[in-house]
Amino acid sequence: MGEIVLSQVKKSFGGISIIQGIDLTIEDGEFVVFVGPSGCGKSTLLRLIAGLEDTSSGTIAIDGRDATRLPPARRGLAMVFQSYALYPHMTVGKNIAFPLRMAGMPKEEQERKVEAAAKVLNLTPYLDRRPSQLSGGQRQRVAIGRAIVREPSAFLFDEPLSNLDAALRVSMRQEISELHQSLKTTMVYVTHDQVEAMTMADKIVVLNAGRIEQVGSPLELYKTPANLFVAGFIGSPKMNFIEGAEAAKHAAHTLGVRPEHVDIAADGPWKGVVGISEHLGSDTFLKVQVEGIGPLTVRAGGEVRLRHGDPVSLAPQTGKLHRFDAAGKTIAA
């Protein structure tokens, strides 16, 4: 059980409106990612769900029960913080047992649960250590362990991987996904990294300036972004935006085309000159200065051997162009 329903949730701090009226339903068992640039209100929204902040107006229902005024401890949720927020003066075992101890669970039962959680998370050898003696990834797992022993109705993650290095981030990402597969518990995950969002989510909520820009599955957002903001935020490298005469040809104010949807073709309509090229091995990203359009990023194959200053012709793939009106809204095809 873990259905969370937000209705017209608003939050302002000292007259400044941070969350501007959010309606959202998170289904039981779903992995939902809140993504957006820093300052978009995604962490605040998570803290409102957690009960660490009061809503200014609107209601939050968890499993059909109004939880808007409940203190965090009584919402049945568990949270993993960005800094892990482990208790530095307690051993790993005591850290994981803390919520059980607070719930007044008998000692033996606490131990059993801690051991079970430690086994799942490969923490058994570290139960007697202090958090300061662990690596970043291990600390992360302790924080997760502390969350899972409570058997919450939903997990809340606040940018949990941002303090880890790149390689570890990838493996922890997979661990969390696997955990979700095995527990089937609702997870709400906040990140500013669209790659994390794309790889982990069942449903992505794109937030900007305290509003929801779009809600949908990763592929929906990639294929049919609702507006310029989502189009620019989802996908890496970023979508190219073209304005002016070329856009007008397609009856749009702005024309969007992803780097992977531009081909190098001798008879292509767009003529340009190669600027910087980044060779990643599998792919090559080219910055091309196109006449009458401006700079475009183009994804080409790994073997492409174009150099700075080489002339090149480009052709956008038909049917993969995105058109936006003057207000930034997508124009339906």
């Binding site: 660490l52 949720l77 949270m79 927020a85 208790y87 919520p99």
Partner: peptide, 27 residues
């Protein structure tokens, strides 16, 4: 002391007294 740790205690079900006694004071 990072406020997140006290918030974690709150999420873990600690009352205000427990938060001060078991988390803040030892730290």
């Amino acid at each position: 002391i990072p406020g997140e740790i006290l918030e974690a205690a709150r999420m873990d079900g600690a009352s205000l007294g427990a938060e001060i006694l078991y988390v803040l004071t030892p730290m």
